[in-house]
Amino acid sequence: MAEEYWRWKEYNWHSPDIDWKQAESVTAGVDVGSVSSQAVIMTDGQLFAYSNMRTGSDSPDSARNAMNWAMEETGMTLEDVQYVVGTGYGRVNVPFAKRPITEIACHARGANWMYGPGVRTVLDMGGQDCKAIHCDERGKVTNFLMNDKCAAGTGRGMEVFADLLSVSIEEVGDMSFDVEEEPEPVSSTCVVFAKSEATSLLREGWPKSKVLAAYCSAMAHRVFTLLERIGVEKDFAITGGIAKNSGVVKRLEQEIGFEALKPKHDTQIAGALGGALFAKALLEKERKK
């Protein structure tokens, strides 16, 4: 197994137009995932700042780092944030969070804000899981499933293939389209068995691009069958790291028969954004008491 490698650039951003000191509510969501961690800060329900970093070996540290980086150069400190919600795989390990909220609820809420109230289906393809969520016009979950038991259909499954073929994960998408004809998908769902299948295809002389095409379409199909369980209704949005892998996304869109909404922001912040929105609602609920 190759060492963990960082796939997308780490970065932070904050709005130059907002004076947070004037805000009535300052809330944050911190999403500690298996691969990456994000912090989102909202002022009065507006997006003020965010960061996206790799998750370290320690969840509390990763949460702190992401939060500090989002606040960098804003003059804000943790004391200024009135309510923090932790989410994601490491949600119970966000030391400064008032409460943890499952990432499914946060993703639905975040996608509702990001893509608008028309979003009905959210697919989140993460590093170690795959979630399919239906939500209503308020971003409330109406139907969901989460697959974190099996590596097939997750970023991790794709990494196994990238390792096997010595292809960087960022190149997978483009390279998978460098084929004359779309091959049959890899037949095994199980990543362990799919890997042996790929090894024998390579021995038969298949080029890497063709093997990747076969795996990307197998992965798209697998995710499609998961989606089918809850049904795909428009508008449809894809979030998470694999949303950046065109090899899977385009094949999935073909199978579904329509396209996913094009993201306005980095899709990886959807969970943390939802957390910040919940934080705002919970803060208001507290203040009413």
Binding site: K140, V141, T142, N143, F144, L145, M146, N147, D148, K149, C150, A152, S188, T189, C190, F193, R222, T225, L226, R229, I230
Partner: peptide
């Protein structure tokens, strides 16, 4: 809400 707990792996689909 329909909450689907479980998973799908190579051997089948298992949800409660």
């Amino acid at each position: 809400m329909l909450a689907n707990y479980g998973y799908k792996d190579g051997s089948g689909e298992y949800f409660i």
